[in-house]
Amino acid sequence: MKKTLISGAVCLLLAACGTSGSNSPASAPGAQGFTPPKLEALKALGQPEGALNVLAWPGYAENGANDPKINWVTPFEQQTGCKVNVKPFGTSDEAVTLMKTGQYDVVSASGDASLRLVASGDVEPVNTVLVPNYNDVYPFLKDKSWNSVNNVAYGIPHGWGANILTWRTDKVSPAPTSWSVMFDANSPYKGKVIAYDSPIYIADAALYLQSHQPDLGIKNPYALDDKQFAAAVALLKQQRPLVSEYWSDYLKESQSLKNGDSVVGTAWQVTVNVTKAEGTPLEATVPSEGVTGWSDTWMVATKSAHKTCAYKWLDYIISPSVNAQVAEYFGEAPANSKACAEMTDKTLCDTYHANDSAYAAKIAYWTTPIPQCLDGRTDVKCKDYGEWTRAWTDIKG
């Protein structure tokens, strides 16, 4: 994808880009504070181009290769004539790098990637009128700071979830109700803590400090000035000796919990489901300090040569039945309000709080940290994603 020349404000954003979110619904609609490249959304669909290159989180675009019963790509190909090539990625940073090659038409971007892609001009606004199933997407997922800018939609919400606290019930007692079990230097589980491997994890430390050191004045864990950022980094360095390993692959985390290398950690609900299903005594909770989380967005590449196929995919992947299949397989809450009725396991939407807007509002969603403080402060500059990345390298040693 061509790297677009952009304004100084957006260049700052790119340097800072990472992840961000706010647990305050007042931060919507859309990201503010920078001007993205001037790009227009597709005005009308044409004839399907016969091909589609998809960049996706593993589990989002299954074609039966891993399990013949898990296949929603083939029906799409049959319906549209768009032959799909899927490239899975393991981290948001990898997705951003791959999108810059110009080889992909659509990407499933989490909040720690989406604004970077917008600012760089690698994705363009989306014409939601051309995506009929968008009408059924939960309102609390639309026009948010990670999927829109200045009231312009840059993608279609797909699925969402929280980064919850999980533990081995046979190894951890009493049941924890606070993240202190992972952050307190005197935690009895030193060397058995497992934490998420990403610069965005700094926000988890900031969220903890928001409750435990209110004098720092943290209002948004993705909007950290020098003092607040230094405190979050110091807390993570204090945590470092407690950590057995950092994970980015939830299956590897599951294995660590199963074999006892780790007994408490940050997890996705799917990790808990998979691990418990295999016989490991595990539970999870939303601690007293709250949680960070993610909401994924399907975005269209600016230089896509297959934009009609891209829009066909966007509408298809969030249709009730397909969104249900993906959510059930991947382990997340679906974006389409009609998807829960299509799920094989009718209990999962309760497990994932899919219909619970109050629960969703409590999550501090990943959003790109930028110099313009996302909490609205104008008298200071906040640390951008580039600085978060450098600090994360230092924290891990």
Rank of each mutant, 00 (worst) to 15 (best):
L207T: 02
E328H: 06
G265V: 11
G217F: 04
R168W: 04
G159N: 10
W298K: 05
L282E: 03
D345H: 08
A267M: 13
A360V: 03
S120A: 14
L257F: 14
W294T: 11
Y138K: 09
A44P: 04
A206I: 00
V172M: 03
G30V: 02
D350E: 14
T297S: 08
L14P: 06
T368L: 09
P281F: 10
S254E: 12
T4P: 00
K362I: 00
G331V: 07
L236C: 07
K396Q: 15
N150H: 13
V84F: 06
G18D: 06
G111L: 06
L13S: 07
G161H: 10
K192M: 07
V300M: 04
K142G: 10
V152E: 14
D184G: 05
K307F: 01
C373N: 05
E62R: 12
A284E: 10
H306K: 03
A234T: 12
A232S: 15
P221I: 00
N66A: 14
G111C: 08
I6L: 11
W146K: 01
N355Y: 09
A31F: 08
S187T: 15
N63K: 11
K276P: 01
A284Q: 06
A16L: 04
G376I: 05
V96A: 11
G159A: 13
Q238I: 10
P369K: 01
A301Q: 03
G30R: 01
C373L: 04
V263Q: 03
K396C: 07
F229M: 05
T128I: 12
G293A: 10
K192R: 13
W146I: 02
V300A: 05
N71I: 04
K396E: 09
A230G: 01
V152T: 15
Y246E: 12
G265Q: 12
W72R: 10
E49R: 01
Y201A: 14
T169M: 07
V73F: 03
N273E: 15
K87C: 08
S7M: 09
L115W: 02
G331R: 05
D112L: 03
A277Q: 13
Q269L: 11
V300D: 02
